[in-house]
Amino acid sequence: MDMDANEQSYNYAELDPEESGSLERQITTPGEVVTSAKEFMRGHGTLLDASGENVVATVAGTVERVNKLVSVKSVKSRYNPEKGDLVVGRITERRKVESDALKMREFLAEGDLRNGQLTIVPASLIRRLKTHFYTLPPPCGPQGVDVILGVNGYIWVCLGSGPGSDKERATQGGGGGTSDGFDNELVYSDKNDIIPPPSRQAISRVCALIQTFARYSIPLTETLLMSAYEWCRHNGLEETGVVLSRALEKQLLEEIVGIVDTDE
């Protein structure tokens, strides 16, 4: 949706109960009155003030409404799990209750992500999409690079399993589905393959690009990553370090995303 001057202005207009949908991009911050109309139900991110008349925002974000339900969606918040989400997990602690451990093993195994590296971005930058497994095809490293976008903001970037790869690996078993139909030995193997330097370079470049976009709050998509990688190749950056200089970063954002003002 385009943002025109009106929507960006600080002027605050109250929600009109008759009008629906048009103000969905309205921005509020905590303590601001979202509406005083009685017919609204209040949803997440809102609060009834002391007088009991006004619906007040409790987070900074956009006002959203579905019929009579008004809620404020925070621009930045912790990951809220939903059914069907694909997440990338990281083991930080083991609880040594035997039955727990056994049950978890039915669904997950440690070390089932391999041949790559983990990178973490704010969860709000990853949208729920049809697929969260991307393969960036071979110009991006000799075997391509696989990317698993966890909705929780954890991203696994690893060696591609496309046609160029020398091992026939089960591809989509990594995240957390049941292992039916996949080769368990390979999916749950925790042995890394030998990864040639160009592939390593490609993997770390993809990670660096992801972090660059994350710093500027740009949501990640397959095409964005691909075109950014292409841009790096095009500009002859293949042999240089993966972390871009400030100037190159600016150029990348300007040419790929269209952000001109990046001074923060």
């Binding site: 943002m3 911050t29 709050s217 964005l224």
Partner: peptide, 20 residues
């Protein structure tokens, strides 16, 4: 806060709009 929130909202949409 408003300015920052506006910037982030814009950015979130920018990424979306330009991929096509």
């Amino acid at each position: 806060v408003r300015q920052r929130t506006t910037t982030i909202v814009e950015r979130m949409q920018m990424g979306q709009g330009t991929t096509a």
